[in-house]
Design a protein around this nucleic acid. Structure first.
Lengths: 340, 340
DNA sequence: ACCCACTGTGCACACGTGTGCACAACATGA
DNA sequence: TCATGTTGTGCACACGTGTGCACAGTGGGT
């Protein structure tokens, strides 16, 4: 049951293990005749190099760790797909772990990775505070943060994010362009940074279209309930207090929650109310009506993070990266009543 | 920049590295005074055990490899979530890789895992042929197959699947119970085993309800197009040739494709046509109308596979596992016209 | 005073691989 | 013939950890 090692091959070939090692790695100092003999023997004996021993010797493991809040989240699934594709080409293996939205667990996972001597770490949707972050700094392992909410120790890590402000602007331009004058924003407090940016881009752009602060109702939900029921509740609140003709939601799940409120209360979407989401999760194509949303380039986000990490692992200078979201217009938005 | 090793600690403590090793691992033969001194020193020096060296020494890596067709597939995302949860508790790290539906690539990934000396492998949705499989047998690494289509070498591996036949029965009982007499089955040829089982369970149960073979139209699609457009095309075919009042689809994506055909051709679901899917992907809750479907216990599937793998890694005898699907009735099914 | 049991520590090896250096064998030139 | 260069191989070490065995030191019993 024991695996065959280069030492085993060496004995069968009557050479030293050094010769076998060099032959396998294509060292030109080994004579061609010996090399071919050893290669044949290796194949015949079913030799499989031991990456663990190689890692120990070469002091890097060709592995990278990926921390994600929830493995089953379709958004992060796409991001991981991008990471995996790039890392696969670079012959790096991926450790994947979930943090369950818990900062302590996230730190524990990272320390796990450190024990395993990963060459780099990608942290998705980090909610680590400054004290946690400084411990990550001590690891002295290249790390890239993806859509991180906190921004301390900015010089120690690279970040890849999307331009949330621009995303808010896109939503505002779309809705204002359709003629909406009475709007709302449904936000999520538990994502402080990106929420603020999407809100600001949205509201400021509406102002530029001559829509006053009084015409835009802004609501935020408690942290402890899931986005879907949160969207439902916020829509309920906004609908009765403000009667908007259009709402922009922090993300698609909030928007779908809002949508289900409308379905249940016979509010016609988009005839009576237009809804815009954010993210473009796979679901968005299939809701009824199909959701207009600000799309994040998810796979690209992962690819970009992977490339930056590979660069900093190679010792190259790297820079943060901000990707541009795009507007995907589907069937949940239309001009308000009375506008042609 | 170099990591601190137990040898470094040993020098500072004026002991040998063996003593440090034993102290850290809680060996009772080390005197309490020395142990506490070493533990303090280790903490102070920021010691992090090197799992790679440990793996080499102990001849197992505490890692397991997971091969999946597509990382972004929400179905497998849930399964991986279950695997990750169980393996996390067992302090095993997860290598995740995608095969992109390519058998050769899948084999390459598995050989990658072998080089990394994983302690076990979980293969999701394997489409490996017998020749490929026999190479996997040679690895002599515990492996578990998840919803595998081929069943050769059955004694070398463990399998975890769901009872596809029973799933087909559930769908048939639901639809026949509603009063449908003219039905159809939309199948996918590229999943030969599970497709056959779902079909058989469905058709046989319909027969038991007195529905003849002539009343059930069965169609299958080409392999090279995606499930969504396939569902659309098959629905088109069936609708014009057979005018069924209900269809059962091999999976949810086919069903959603069929649904979009109905939307585009003003066929009212479920008033004119009932649709049943299979899998219960997250999407199913949010389509319009929400999809009635046969639900696979996805997270449980992953957990079960993980437990079986852990068992066989521990050398225990294990057995294949067949999980039971369940019916989730939503809004895409109803009694046909003319039936109360 | 001596033998014995017991306790705590170090030596030396193993795991599998890669590589600097030395060196043997052989060829080449003067 | 000898110095010099070239080519191919082996020795020995390193990477970091765990552990069987030997052994020094200590205490107790006769």
């Amino acid at each position: 049951m024991r695996r065959v090692s280069i030492e085993d091959i060496a004995q069968r070939a009557n050479v030293s293990h050094s010769t076998v090692s060099r032959a396998l790695r294509g060292n030109p100092r080994i004579s061609p005749s010996v090399r071919t003999r050893i290669l044949a023997l290796a194949r015949e004996m079913g030799y499989v190099p031991n990456a663990i021993a190689q890692s120990l010797q070469q002091r890097h493991s060709n592995t990278i760790g990926v921390v994600v809040t929830d493995v089953a989240d379709p958004f992060w699934g796409e991001v991981v797909k991008g990471i995996e594709a790039v890392m696969g080409e670079a012959h790096k293996a991926l450790f994947l772990s979930a943090s369950q939205h818990d900062a302590d667990r996230q730190l524990a996972v990272i320390e796990q990775f450190q024990q395993r001597r990963v060459d780099g770490i990608i942290i998705a949707d980090s909610q680590l505070g400054p004290t946690h972050l400084s411990r990550v700094v001590e690891l002295a392992v290249p790390a890239v943060f993806l859509n991180s909410q906190r921004i301390s120790h900015a010089n120690s890590f690279r970040m890849v994010t999307i331009d949330n402000t621009h995303g808010g602007q896109l939503a505002a331009m779309h809705l204002a362009g359709l003629g909406h004058r009475r709007l709302a924003y449904l936000g999520a407090h538990k994502r402080p940074a990106s929420n603020q940016q999407r809100h600001d881009g949205y509201v400021n752009t509406l102002h530029q279209h001559g829509i006053t602060a009084a015409d835009v109702m802004v609501v935020h939900g408690a942290a402890h309930i899931d986005d879907l029921t949160l969207g439902y509740a916020l829509m309920h609140e906004v609908w009765h207090a403000h009667q908007p003709t259009a709402v922009f939601c922090y993300n698609d799940m909030l928007a779908l929650g809002a949508l289900s409120f409308c379905q249940q209360h016979q509010i016609a979407v988009p005839a009576e109310l237009s809804i815009v989401g954010f993210d473009d999760v796979p679901l968005a194509r299939f809701s009824w009506p199909a959701l207009t949303t600000v799309a994040q380039p998810k796979v690209h986000l992962g690819r970009q993070a992977a490339h930056i990490l590979l660069d900093s692992m190679a010792g190259n200078a790297t820079t943060d990266s901000i990707l541009t979201p795009s507007m995907v217009v589907r069937s949940s938005t239309a001009a308000p009543k009375g506008v042609v």
